Amino acid sequence: MASTKPLKVFNLYRCWMHNRGRYLVAAHSKSEAAKLIGCSIYFLNNYSYELTTEDREEYKLAMSAPKQVFKQELHNNPYLPLSK
């Protein structure tokens, strides 16, 4: 069953399960985002923020592929889809 909640874009600075970097995902909730990224709600609460500015490139990227996790290795690198 599809969720009726609107999508939110979460930007996470690091994750204990993956190599360090920045992660980006459009999900319906923090718990869904944590599950998609593969980290805990604790990490989302402490190391992430919600993007709300629709004109930011990161926001547009995440919303173009809901539930797809994107990773940026280094600050100047582009976000790339994270393969599972």
Rank of each mutant, 00 (worst) to 15 (best):
M1W: 13
T4M: 15
K5M: 12
K5Y: 09
K5W: 07
P6S: 11
P6V: 08
L7D: 11
L7V: 05
L7H: 09
K8M: 15
K8Y: 15
K8V: 11
K8H: 15
V9L: 15
V9F: 10
V9Q: 14
F10P: 11
F10H: 14
N11I: 14
L12K: 09
L12H: 10
Y13Q: 12
Y13I: 05
R14F: 01
R14N: 13
R14T: 07
R14M: 11
C15I: 07
W16T: 14
W16H: 13
M17Q: 15
M17Y: 15
H18Y: 12
H18S: 14
N19A: 13
R20P: 00
R20Q: 07
G21L: 03
G21Q: 04
R22F: 01
R22M: 04
Y23Q: 04
Y23H: 05
Y23K: 04
L24Y: 03
L24R: 03
L24G: 00
V25D: 04
V25A: 10
V25N: 06
V25S: 02
A26C: 09
A26W: 09
A26R: 04
A27K: 03
A27W: 03
H28M: 05
H28N: 14
S29T: 09
K30S: 09
K30G: 03
S31P: 00
K35F: 11
K35D: 15
K35H: 10
K35P: 05
L36G: 06
L36Y: 02
L36T: 02
I37K: 02
G38R: 03
C39W: 05
S40F: 09
S40K: 08
I41Y: 09
I41H: 10
I41E: 08
Y42D: 08
Y42H: 12
F43G: 09
F43L: 10
L44F: 10
L44I: 08
L44D: 05
L44C: 10
N45Y: 11
N45W: 12
N46A: 08
Y47P: 05
Y47S: 09
S48N: 10
S48W: 11
S48P: 09
Y49P: 08
Y49M: 14
Y49R: 14
E50F: 12
T53E: 12
T53Q: 11
T53F: 08
T53R: 10
E54R: 15
E54P: 10
E54A: 13
D55E: 11
D55L: 11
D55K: 12
R56E: 12
R56L: 12
R56W: 11
E57R: 04
E58F: 06
Y59I: 07
K60N: 01
K60A: 05
L61E: 01
L61F: 00
L61G: 02
M63N: 04
Q68V: 06
V69H: 03
V69R: 00
V69Y: 06
F70D: 00
K71F: 01
K71A: 01
Q72M: 01
Q72C: 03
Q72G: 00
Q72W: 03
E73F: 07
E73D: 08
L74N: 04
H75L: 00
H75C: 00
H75R: 01
N76D: 02
P78K: 12
P78M: 06
P78E: 14
P78C: 05
P78L: 09
P78A: 09
P78V: 00
Y79L: 04
Y79G: 05
Y79D: 03
P81Q: 08
L82K: 02
L82G: 01
L82A: 02
S83K: 13
